[in-house]
């Protein structure tokens, strides 16, 4: 589904990612964990072409990803919910969802009702402006907007940021529900223990390099991961 081989990228000549290799198979939930500044967001942004690829290759559904063309990727079924959400603040909740559906253009999509069932609060706020929603509501809207585009691979950058523990589980349950409907998910999380409990596989990123990879359960038990990220 997604394959990164020897990926190098960064900003203004500064290399952040060094030879990153990573794969996501169909129907998998794959997690990336790592310290602040390790390059997790940069990895996701490189995949969608928002950060320029400086070496190596990214392929999605066996076709190379061309830098600077993130809108085409969305249409091919790869959608990113970025760290800062990138909602359309001056548009209503409903308009944001409608815009999300632009990505699928004729492809089969999730039913809007199914998406709104995942996040019922959005149903009550359809005419509210996105910028006036609370932080947690905005996070849910950002995920719902991406789902409207019916992605085959969904990239989530710290979807639990700013959410209460209960809402965090709402979002994680939604991630599992999405996977159960055949979507692959690549998820970056600060909440390592929680995400490793349901991820099929995971990567540990340190200073722009993958230092560990394995099944979610294995990594959760790994002494190094426990020391660094699980406070154990």
């Amino acid at each position: 589904m997604l394959e990164l081989t020897g990926v190098r990228s960064g900003y203004h000549g500064l290399e952040i990612l060094h030879e990153v290799n990573l794969t996501v198979q169909p129907g998998e939930i794959v997690a990336i964990v790592g310290a602040n500044g390790a390059g997790k967001s940069t990895t996701l942004r490189t995949i969608v072409g928002e950060v320029k690829l400086q070496g190596g290759s990214v392929t999605f559904k066996d076709q190379p990803v061309v830098g600077g063309r993130s809108h085409e990727l969305a249409r091919r079924g790869l959608m990113l919910v970025p760290e800062h959400r990138a909602l359309f603040g001056s548009l209503t909740v409903d308009e944001n969802l409608t815009m999300g559906a632009r990505a699928r253009k004729g492809r089969w999509g999730f039913e809007k009702d199914w998406i709104l069932d995942l996040f019922p609060i959005l149903r009550e706020r359809r005419t509210q402006l996105a910028e006036t929603m609370s932080g947690g509501q905005q996070q849910m809207l950002a995920i719902a907007r991406a789902l409207m585009g019916s992605p085959d691979l969904l990239l989530l950058d710290e979807p639990s940021t700013g959410l209460s523990p209960k809402l965090t589980w709402t979002v994680f349950d939604a991630v599992k529900a999405i996977r159960d409907r055949g979507v692959s998910v690549l998820i970056v999380e600060q909440n390592a223990s929680q995400v490793l409990s349901f991820a099929d596989r995971a990567y540990v990123l340190e200073s722009g390099s993958v230092v560990l990879e394995g099944s979610g359960a294995d990594l959760a038990d790994d002494a190094r991961v426990q020391a660094a990220y699980l406070g154990g």
């Binding site: 970025p82 548009l91 990505a103």
Partner: peptide, 21 residues
């Protein structure tokens, strides 16, 4: 028009939902 307002509000978000900004 909705696409235009979306691009005005957040060009990156627009690209991420498949809009050619």
């Amino acid at each position: 028009g909705t696409s235009i307002r979306a691009v005005a509000a957040n060009p990156e978000g627009a690209r991420l939902v498949g809009i050619n900004t």
